[in-house]
Design a protein around this nucleic acid. Structure first.
Length: 800
RNA sequence: GCCGAAGUGGUGGAACUGGCAGACGCGUCGGACUCAAAAUCCGAAGCUCUUCGGAGCGUGGGGGUUCGAGUCCCCCCUUCGGCACCA
C-alpha cells in the first residue's frame, strides 16, 4: 500500500472540519489552555514557509494539551489593515477590501492545508466593522482616561508613504515599510500616552515568563535612567536653563552648556543675542536635516555659541558659555545639557572642536587623550572631593535639593506613541471636532464608525488623509451642541487592531461587548504566546500597554495579557539569505504540500534545528522527513497480534514517552523527533512489534504528523481516533536499564568499560575496577592516588 | 560605541545540575536487490598517524580552576540580532 498523503490529508482535514474536533469548548469547569501565535498579515505573496514554524510548534503543544484533558483555545485571525493592501489598491485601482478578502481566502486555504488544529469558528478580522467597532471603543476609553491627546509636534514623516511614523517604525533613518527617506515635519497628531505606563511596563516584566532577551530588549527600549534636573541661571536675566544629567557628580567639570536647535530659550532671549542671525541659519539647517543625517552622517560636532549671554554653574559659580548644537535632542530630557568634556566623550569631542576647557573631576583616566567615564575618586570638586562616583552622585543630589537648585529626576527614552495615520486603510478615529465644543468623542452607540467609500486612496498633497476629501462624511453636526462640526479624518495605525485581538478570540461573536466578562475571566491570561523578535518593541509593548489600560478601567481581569512569551528563528533560503523574490530563493508552502504532504512539511520544520535560531531551508532535509514518514507508514506489516511491550523495549519506550512529552513543551521538537526516529529504527531492526508498541508510536508522533498517524491508527484497527486518546504517561523507574555501562578512565582518558548493576555502590564499583583483568595494563607502574566513582557515569583512576 | 545571542565533523544540529563529544537527519562511501538506474533495505565513517594491536589530536584562539571542561572563570577573535549624539 502506498502512502497517498494527498488523499489522507484531505480526508482527515474534512473530518476535523465537519466534526469541529479542535473547537474550544464552552465548558468553563475544565482546566483551560490558551496558546497564541501572532495572527498573520494576509499579504499578496501568500503564506511564507516561516509562518508554519511558529504555528506548528504551538500546534504540538495544543494537541498534546487536549489529549491531557485541557480545554484548549488555539485561535487564528487576520491582521488585515495596513499599507501593502492600500498600495496595491492605489496601483491597481481596486478597493483594499477586495484585495484583502482575496488574500485572506488564500491564506485560509494554505493554513487549512497544513492541518493546524486552529479553532476556525473563532476567526477574527481586524477590518471587519464588527471587530473594529471595539478597536474604536478602546480608543474612546483611552481618550476618556486622558491617554489619547492631539499634539502639534515634530514627527517622523515618510516622504514616499506621506505618512507620520512612530519612532519604532523608523529604521536607520528610513521608513520601515518602504525604505524611503524620513524627514522631520511638524503636524498635528493623535498621540497615546504610553510613557505614563513606562514604569509599570518595566516592573511587571518581573511577573511574566518571557525569554530573557525579550525582557532585556523591552527594558532597553523603555530606557529608564536616574539623575537630576539642575537649574543653571543665565547671568543678567531672570531666565534659567534646566538640564538633565545622570552624572550630577561631575558638575564641577561643566565648562559650557549646549541647547538643542529647537530649544525655546533662543526665542526667549532673542532680543539680547548678538549673533541671532547666524543662529537662525544654524537652526534652519538643523531643521532640514533628517534624523538620519543628524545622527548617522554627522558625527563631527557642529554648533554655534550664543553671544551676549553666559550661564552660571550653580555649584562652581563660574560663568560658562552657552552653545546651540544638534547633538543635543529636544525630545529627550530637557533639550539642554551641561557640557562635561572630561567625562563624556561627546562633550569631549565638542570641547576639542571649539577649544573649550576640559577639567578633570574624577581621577583614574587620562583626559589629555579621551573622556574618562569609569569609576574613580572625585577631584577638583570641593564639596565632594575624595568620594567615589556613587556616593558623590547621592551627595550632590541632596545638596542640590537642599539649596533648591534642582531635583532628582527619572527619564525614559520611550516616547509617546504617534497614533495618527493620514491613510485610508485603517480604523477611522471616532472623534468629531466642533468649532464650539472642541474635541467631541463619538458615543458608544454610534460605533462602529464605518470606513466610508472613497474614489481614490491616495494621501492628499498637503498630507491629509483620503477621508478628508469626502465632504458629506467629514461635515457633521456636533453631537453635543448640534452646531457644524467636522470628523477627524486620520485613521489608526496597523498596530491598533493587533493590540487586543487575543481578547476578541475569547468571545468573537459577542455584539454587546468585545468579550463577556465570564469568558475573559476563564481564558485570560494567554498561557503561551509565540512570535517573532521583530515585534518585541512594537506590537508586544503596545499590546501590553493597551491591556494595562483596559485592566485599569476594569475591562480585563489581568494586569498582563501574556503569561509566557517565546520566540522563533527565521527560515532562510537554501543559500542562507533571507527569502525574497529578488533573490529567487522563495520556497512556496503549496509546492511542498503538493509534492511531499503537510505532515512532511510539519515534521521537517520541527526537525530542522534549534527553534530559536535562524536556519536555512534544504530540499534534502524535506526528503529526509518524508523518508521517515514512509518508514512509519510501512510499519503495520510487522504488527503482531499481541499487546504490551516486549521486555527489552520497555525502557526505550518509557524513555521516549518522557523525552517527547518534555521536548514538545519546551520548543525542542527537533530532539523529540530524533527520539521517535530512534524508536522507529529499533522497530525496523526487529521486524516484529506488538499492537501497543505501534500504538504508542502513533500517539507520540501524532502532534507532529496528525494526518498520517490517524490514518494508520484507523487502518490498524485501533478504536476511535488518536485525537480522542489520553496522552501517555511514563514511569520514571522504567526509563532506566538495570545494568549500566561505565567508562573507566585513567587520568581522564577512557581505557576500558565495565558493566555493573545500576544499584551497585561506589565501593563495589571501585573494587570491581581494581580487580579488573586489564587494570594493570594502564597503571604504567604508578600508584593509585585516588579513585573517583560517579554512579551511572564513569570511574576515574588518578595516578601519582 | 552599548546591550543581547552564538561559534561543535563535509553539513543541519545533539549533549540534564561539569562526567564516555558528535544522538538524530542530510550528504558521502560500501553491500544487498536490479540487465542497469532510481527507490528501498543493511552497514561504515571526527581528524591525523599506524607495524592494523593501537596511538595522538580534537567543541573559534590563548590562559586558568578541577581527578575531569563544549559546559565554570579571565583575556582576545569572528558572526548574527537589537539600540545608538538618550546627556
Amino acid at each position: 500500500m502506498k502512502y497517498d498523503f494527498k488523499a489522507i490529508e484531505k480526508k482527515w482535514q474534512q473530518r476535523w472540519e465537519q466534526e469541529g474536533t479542535f473547537y474550544a469548548k464552552e465548558d468553563h469547569t475544565l482546566p483551560k489552555f490558551y496558546p497564541l501565535i501572532e495572527f498573520p498579515y494576509p499579504s499578496g505573496q501568500g503564506l511564507h514557509v516561516g509562518h508554519p514554524r511558529s504555528y506548528t510548534a504551538l500546534d504540538l503543544v495544543a494537541r498534546k494539551k487536549r489529549m491531557e484533558g485541557y480545554n484548549v483555545l488555539y485561535p487564528i485571525g487576520w491582521d488585515a489593515f495596513g499599507l501593502p493592501a492600500e498600495n496595491y489598491a492605489i496601483e491597481h485601482k481596486v478597493h483594499p477590501k477586495t484585495v484583502t478578502e482575496k488574500n485572506i481566502q488564500n491564506f485560509r486555504r494554505q493554513l487549512k492545508a497544513l492541518g493546524l488544529s486552529f479553532d476556525w469558528s473563532r476567526e477574527v478580522n481586524t477590518t471587519d466593522p464588527e471587530y473594529y467597532k471595539w478597536t474604536q471603543w478602546i480608543f474612546l476609553k483611552l481618550y476618556e482616561k486622558g491617554l489619547a491627546y492631539k499634539a502639534n509636534m515634530d514627527i517622523n514623516f515618510c516622504t514616499s508613504c506621506k505618512v507620520g511614523l512612530a519612532n519604532e517604525e523608523v529604521v536607520n533613518g528610513v521608513c520601515e515599510r518602504c525604505g524611503s527617506e524620513v524627514v522631520r515635519r511638524e503636524k498635528e497628531q493623535w498621540m497615546l500616552k504610553i510613557t505614563e505606563y513606562a514604569d509599570r511596563l518595566i516592573q511587571d516584566l518581573d511577573t511574566v515568563d518571557y525569554i530573557e532577551r525579550v525582557k532585556i530588549q523591552q527594558k532597553n527600549w523603555i530606557g529608564k535612567s536616574f539623575g537630576a534636573d539642575i537649574r543653571f541661571p543665565i547671568e543678567g536675566t531672570r531666565e534659567e536653563l534646566l538640564v538633565y544629567t545622570t552624572r550630577p557628580d561631575t558638575i564641577y567639570g561643566a565648562t559650557y552648556m549646549v541647547i538643542s536647535p529647537e530649544h525655546p530659550l533662543i526665542t526667549t532671549l532673542r532680543e539680547g543675542i548678538e549673533n541671532l542671525a547666524e543662529i537662525k541659519v544654524y537652526q534652519e539647517e538643523a531643521r532640514k536635516k533628517s534624523d538620519f543625517e543628524r545622527t548617522e552622517l554627522n558625527k563631527d560636532k557642529t554648533g554655534i555659541q550664543i553671544k551676549g549671554f553666559h550661564a552660571r554653574n550653580p555649584i562652581s559659580e563660574q560663568l560658562i558659555p552657552i552653545f546651540v548644537s544638534d547633538y543635543v535632542m529636544m525630545s529627550y530630557g530637557t533639550g539642554a545639557i551641561m557640557g562635561v568634556p572630561g567625562h563624556d566623550q561627546r562633550d569631549y569631542d565638542f570641547a576639542k572642536a571649539f577649544g573649550l576647557d576640559i577639567i578633570e573631576v574624577i581621577s583614574g583616566g587620562d583626559i589629555s587623550k579621551e573622556a574618562y567615564t569609569g569609576d574613580g575618586v572625585l577631584v577638583n570638586s570641593p564639596l565632594i572631593n575624595g568620594m567615589k562616583v556613587k556616593e558623590a552622585i547621592e551627595t550632590m543630589i541632596s545638596h542640590i535639593e537642599d539649596r533648591q537648585l534642582g531635583y532628582k529626576k527619572t527619564n525614559y527614552k520611550l516616547r509617546d506613541w504617534v497614533f495618527s495615520r493620514q491613510r485610508y486603510w485603517g480604523e477611522p478615529i471616532p472623534i468629531i471636532h466642533c468649532e464650539h465644543c472642541g474635541t467631541v468623542p463619538l458615543e458608544e452607540k454610534d460605533l462602529p464608525l464605518i470606513l466610508p467609500e472613497v474614489e481614490s486612496y491616495e494621501t492628499a498633497e498637503d498630507g491629509s488623509s483620503p477621508l478628508a476629501k469626502i465632504e458629506e462624511w467629514v461635515n457633521v453636526t456636533c453631537p453635543k451642541c448640534g452646531g457644524p462640526a467636522k470628523r477627524e479624518t486620520d485613521t489608526m495605525p496597523q498596530w491598533a487592531g493587533s493590540s487586543w485581538y487575543f481578547l476578541r478570540y475569547t468571545d468573537p461573536h459577542n455584539h454587546e461587548a468585545f468579550s463577556s466578562q465570564e469568558n475573559l475571566d476563564y481564558w485570560l491570561p494567554i498561557d503561551w504566546y509565540n512570535g517573532g523578535m521583530e515585534h518585541t518593541t512594537l506590537h508586544l509593548l503596545y499590546s501590553r500597554f493597551w491591556h494595562k489600560v483596559l485592566y485599569d478601567v476594569g475591562a480585563v481581569p489581568t494586569a498582563e495579557p501574556y503569561a509566557k512569551r517565546t520566540s522563533h528563528g527565521m527560515i532562510l533560503g537554501e543559500n542562507g539569505e533571507k527569502m525574497s523574490k529578488s533573490r529567487g530563493n522563495v520556497v512556496n508552502p503549496d509546492e511542498i504540500i503538493e509534492n511531499f504532504g503537510a505532515d512532511t512539511m510539519r515534521l521537517y520544520e520541527m526537525f530542522i534545528g534549534d527553534f530559536e535560531k535562524s536556519v536555512s531551508w534544504t530540499e534534502n532535509g524535506v526528503k529526509g522527513a518524508k523518508r521517515f514518514l514512509d518508514r512509519v507508514f510501512k510499519l503495520p506489516q510487522w504488527v503482531r497480534d499481541e499487546t504490551g511491550y516486549s521486555e527489552d523495549l520497555e525502557v526505550l519506550i518509557h524513555q521516549t514517552i518522557k523525552k517527547v512529552s518534555h521536548d514538545y513543551e519546551h520548543l525542542k521538537a527537533n530532539t523529540a523527533v530524533a527520539q521517535l526516529m530512534t524508536l522507529v529504527n529499533e522497530y525496523y531492526k526487529r521486524k516484529s512489534i506488538t499492537r501497543d508498541e505501534m500504538k504508542i508510536l502513533l500517539i507520540l508522533l501524532n502532534p507532529v504528523a496528525p494526518h498520517v498517524t490517524e490514518e494508520i491508527w484507523e487502518k490498524t484497527g485501533y478504536p476511535d481516533t488518536i485525537a480522542e486518546q489520553k496522552w501517555p504517561q511514563y514511569l520514571e523507574e522504567k526509563t532506566k536499564e538495570d545494568t549500566v555501562e561505565l567508562a573507566v578512565q585513567f587520568n581522564g582518558k577512557v581505557r576500558f568499560k565495565i558493566v555493573v548493576e545500576r544499584s551497585a555502590s561506589g565501593s563495589e564499583i571501585e573494587k570491581m575496577v581494581l580487580a579488573h583483568e586489564r587494570f594493570n595494563e594502564f597503571t604504567g607502574g604508578k600508584a593509585v592516588a585516588k579513585v573517583i566513582v560517579i554512579p551511572e557515569r564513569l570511574v576515574n583512576i588518578v595516578l601519582k
